[in-house]
Nucleic acid binder design. Sequence first.
DNA 1: GAAGTTTTAGACAGATCTGTCTGATATGCT
DNA 2: AGCATATCAGACAGATCTGTCTAAAACTTC
Lengths: 191, 191
Amino acid sequence: MASTKLPARQRLLDAADKLFYAEGVHTVGIDRLIEEAGVAKGSLFYNFSGKDDLVAAYLEGRDRQRRERIARFQQGLGDPVDKLLAIFDALQETVSSPGWRGCPFANASAEALPGSVEAEALRAFRDWLSNAMLSLCEEAGFVEPAGVAARLRLLYDGAVSNSNLDAQPEAVGWAKELAAKVLHDSPRASE
Amino acid sequence: MASTKLPARQRLLDAADKLFYAEGVHTVGIDRLIEEAGVAKGSLFYNFSGKDDLVAAYLEGRDRQRRERIARFQQGLGDPVDKLLAIFDALQETVSSPGWRGCPFANASAEALPGSVEAEALRAFRDWLSNAMLSLCEEAGFVEPAGVAARLRLLYDGAVSNSNLDAQPEAVGWAKELAAKVLHDSPRASE
DNA sequence: GAAGTTTTAGACAGATCTGTCTGATATGCT
DNA sequence: AGCATATCAGACAGATCTGTCTAAAACTTC
């Protein structure tokens, strides 16, 4: 047999990532999780302070994953406009991956109370992406970087929402196309 | 005192509309509902077959509301392009209303199973809106009506998502602006 | 091999939530 | 008045879910 018996903590994280995303953090209970992970209930509470803690860890993992994916697509690009468009390429990969079921942060916090770990994770990722877009728009020398960034954000959100709800992966392509148009048409200060 | 003591069914619908939207269909339990409505628990099950039935009724009401709002903004307009843009005006009103907390259908079905009343309600509204947009794009004589409609849908979804998650009501204005650009730039068959 | 850490299986407590049931009471119609 | 419908208050059942606890076993590390 394989010698790769991962520690309980890791198996729980794997099970959480799979089940929480596929079925929802509220829907999946502790019993389902430990069964999927193949660990005892006690191990969950030994490694995590509770379900919320595991949910937070799951969302942190997704957050890190997304940032890394975007960074990977931006690697080697110098032009900030190219970097902005690369964000849509990263999204294309995200929504094309098997089992795509929409933004994990939005799903988890859809009916969560403000201040919950779910709501905080959503906010953290959104703020990071918004700031990243804004910085690139400033770097690109747009006269109104905030306005350009906001429009890109709108297209990004639309693509996420649309690709999920209508199961249309092409949505990201349309969004990128419109984003390119916005970037092309927006006035830039002469350098 | 006022003689306007509404029947239990109506008071339950009012309470459901308020609480389900504000706090989520999963978060709000039966006890909260009957307390808010000021009815006995028995009355809930006398008028509805169960919580799901009440959820369905709540979502049906929201669906009707949205369609009526769109119809109201389209009233008197002849040009299909104007009617398409009027959809964004209706959305502007929607997201500007106090207590806006995002699309009720998306919220309710965020973690719902496929086939649930929540998922069905979401699908019903989405299909209706997509078809309405497509019909108007055809009527307007676009060479590729489906592509134009899909792009408008993307902008609509982006505006909904963005206005909620970032609390930016201006998002709808940007979406309408981009929609106008799409409608203006898309090729139309000569009539 | 001894000591400390990690994991196991599962019973159990405590909270919560949907839905049922009862029996009395109110309301509206004829 | 009389009868069907609608509503009331609340106890109760049954399911589910998070988290605790226990006592033994396995694994690590020195």
